[in-house]
Design a protein around this nucleic acid. Structure first.
Lengths: 212, 212, 212, 212
DNA sequence: TATGAATGAGCGTTCATTCAT
DNA sequence: AATGAATGAACGCTCATTCAT
């Protein structure tokens, strides 16, 4: 803390890259990657354009760094919840969706996935990174959660892989309608009610067939 | 294969705008709007850069023209199917999803919605156009289809507005995983099986509650 | 008149070049040469862009044709008035200025001289043409009018060449203030009053010195 | 001769805008605004095209900056000379014209007014700027100089407003003939002799009428 | 570490001119 | 005689990147 002999006007240098990334997410999310200039990011982060290149070798590296930074926590939280569960998957699904809603509904955490979606085509490295670090870990986990649910007779005999789409899809659609097109239900982007309605249908739909 | 390699005759004026749009979809879809130059589009369509401006006043007008051309047919088909139906909505939903799958699963028809999704942030006019011409016509139609289904006792007492997300979401998610991240189930982008699995759950989930 | 066997829908072809020039003056005057496109001129004249090139080999040829057409009459009228006069030049000067004011004050005749002034730098051929056909005929004529006036003792012993500037300059300045900067005297661009005031001073100033 | 051939040191930031403007006047004067490209200006000033935009946000801003830089000094000098004078205006007029001749006869100072004249039509902001900063200050000053001369009986009863045209016009015409059309008197653009001849006539013409 | 002046390649757009019809 | 589709060169402007300081 006080070991530095002349700390008076020292800037916390290690924090800089993060500040730059913060500025970048904000601007990329608001205007898109292509429409955001390095100059804008630099000003937003409180330094000069040239200094950005001290921390990141190119504009695209910003995007990558950005995604990388945001991605690990989400996936980790998700996986740890599902990984080793045995039994009726429905309670875990409820927990899982509520956690995601909690994460995304609150803050600018939504910005990164949105960004990935938009830039995935022009920047396949980004899509790949997201796939590697999030999707290819979370989807198989969900898939095997469902598989053991089917095998244990806890739920109807559905295709575990495809059912993952039925679990996550309505939430994705809800967010996309709201975020991209500004279409919200009459009482606003109410994630709780969406999930409640969704789970009512989903859980009834997953109920094992009573009469064999 | 199916298109003239180098058309001998110039001056087929009426066909040109469409050819330009064809080139534009292809390139926009492959590289994104911002990363595609007008020059590229022109060469792809077999004309000079300047000639593109004979048919479209700006690059953005290409995007708009593109979306406009692709959008009306989809929405029209959808609406006409749903509009005046009375009774258990489930058969119509099956028809509806199959139609959409037929339209999107086949060709480059998917390119335009994908494009809209990506450019929506930087080009809000595009998002607005899509909303006006597709979403704001299709979603209310679906919503009231569900509403009368609930009121007629044909399905469980769900929120009609939110249930629309449960109907369409899984399809959206399936396409997005495949198209954006290259994630497909073990037997490929099999839209029929996806829909079948989805509808099994959905229809069981919508079954009116038997007791009380 | 009736010699043509099928004159029904015949356009008076010989009039076309003039119509094109009419359109060109109007637009060049309003927007400048560089800011006016051949397309605009063509539309204004009621034909297609390509057809303009039937009558004029290039855009610059339009400007030249324009000036040429407007120039001869002005100079001719001026010269014929001055050429052979002997005696006190003052009555001729009055006549001359009134004629010019009549020509310029009325119509779009001002447009061409204004155009020449503006484009003279970038298009020296234009300046040269104007010089050849107007200035180098009118100025020497005025100069010798003044010279014989001095030599005959009708006016003060002034420099005939420089006095031409004193005769024409105030009118030029008046028009330029009005046309370029929108600065007009309190009662509008009143050419008669301007000339009256100007001539009062000029003629008194030219009065031969009474003493010796 | 008087400027560094190839400056060894980059980064003389404060001088650059002025250098760019210098290059711009030269080229605009020689070729006109529209016919001069930013690239030309940049090369002339020894920088790259992109660098010009470091100092000026647009090509038009160059023109404006140019005019602005040249305009204030002229007007200031003029006004300060005339403003509060009482009595026979003729001595002040002589001083005033000599000062203007001194300013314009020497250097490239003429380039800017010429430029204003030419671009006034296509760039009304420029005309307006010149009007605001020069004409609307100098002309009223001259007008009231004349008015008090008339009222004090120092000069003939002329219209003060219109007489301003008689004072300045011959000089304007002399410069225009020379600069635009290359027409000069036999002994060159001799501003002193022009002014002498002009004032002889003007002052005699302004002499109060002797016999009432 | 930090700057910001400087660059150069590229983009969207315009337009005078040509030419098959 | 007349068209208008087509071109290509040029222009104003932007911006990611570099580098001397």
């Amino acid at each position: 803390m006080t070991s530095d002999p002349k700390p008076k006007f020292r800037r916390r240098a290690e924090a800089r890259p993060d500040e730059v990334l913060d500025a970048a997410v904000a601007l990329f999310a608001a205007q898109g990657y292509a429409a955001t200039s390095v100059e804008q990011i630099a000003r937003h982060a409180g330094l000069s354009k040239g200094s950005v290149y001290l921390y990141f070798p190119s504009k695209k590296a910003l995007l990558e760094g950005l995604v990388h930074r945001a991605v690990a926590p989400i996936a980790d939280a998700a996986i740890s919840m599902i990984a080793t569960y045995r039994g009726d998957p429905r309670p875990v699904i409820r927990q899982f969706l509520n956690m995601i809603a909690g994460k995304l509904g609150s803050e600018a955490a939504l910005a990164v996935p949105k960004l990935v979606l938009r830039e995935a085509v022009s920047a396949p490295e980004i899509a790949q990174m997201y796939r590697d670090e999030v999707l290819d870990r979370a989807i198989p986990a969900l898939t095997s959660l469902m598989r053991q649910g089917v095998e244990g007779g806890h739920i109807r005999k559905v295709d575990p892989e495809l059912t993952v789409r039925s679990i996550m899809g309505p939430l994705l659609m809800h967010l996309m309608l709201a975020e991209v097109f500004g279409i919200e239900p009459s009482d606003g982007l109410n994630l709780e009610r969406l999930i409640e309605n969704h789970l009512t249908i989903l859980f009834a739909g997953l109920e094992p067939e009573t009469n064999p």
